[in-house]
Amino acid sequence: MLKLIAKRLVSLPFVVISITFITFIVGYMAPGDPILAMLGGRTDPAAYERLKHSYGLDQPWQDQYLDYLSGLLRGDLGLSFRFQGRPVADIIASGISVSTALGLAALAGSLVIGIPVGLWAGVHPNSKRDRVGMALMLMLYSIPSFVLIGLLRWFNYQFYLRGLPSLPVAGWGRPEHWIMPVIVLASASMGYIARLTRVSMLEVQRQDYIRTAHAKGLYNRRVLWTHALRNAALPILTVIGPSIAFVVTGAFVVENLFSIPGIGFLSVQAIQQRDYPVIQSTTVILALSVLLMNLITDMLYMAVDPRVRVEG
């Protein structure tokens, strides 16, 4: 396992360099101009040239990239274009903790509901309970999050009008601010998790040792919960990886619609403003978190099933 960690650590710099390079090149070629975004649509050629020079954007692209990379090596993420002169590290630092907390809450919520529902449905495949349970999960899954948010807000407003307790519909800072985003974020990934859990459970059940156990006359439920569940643990673990990915992607929409100052929110705003130093850094951070999560799931595989060899 140490070997695995060591191997992953070695590949880290390559991943970071290639990510920053691709982001940089795409950003460099993408249309839209950070300086124009700053000027707010006004055209003043002199001001334009001045700003372009002061941000080093009149340099050839290799120089711009090398500048960025050498800064990165010194632990300097550079300065934001939009928040003129403000260090990127300063901008994204608080965003990381906000997104992590929100993401973990949503992940916990969706796992705690999604896995049992999926197991429950998988144990009784094609039963009425299976169908109804899965249909509900799928419906939650297929409602676009902005529609779900609209509905939640409408209900909340009706509560407010009648003097009943209501929730803040956006913002961040108070505990009540968590409820709606977590519900929205969890409900989409819940469906995903339930369904993948169900199919894993089905696939484990049709494995031969389960059938052998059945043939040996073992009592049905015991077979399921002792043999099958233990063996389904591994595929279920694999669900966690994608569901983290799911929560990360979902955060882009949810953070934006609820004005939550997390990484997803900052990234989208930065992309719209062409604030490349911020885009670069959020991308690197997302990549690192994906790497970390993958490492953890791989380590879990090895812990659960020692036969699994993971290349690293």
């Binding site: 807000r153 803040p168 913002g171 004005s259």
Partner: peptide
């Protein structure tokens, strides 16, 4: 002064007394 990128969200906040 609170920042609300989306004016629909701001309207929803107003009408729930925020």
């Amino acid at each position: 002064l609170s920042f609300n990128p989306d004016s629909e969200t701001a309207y929803q906040l107003y009408r729930t007394g925020e």
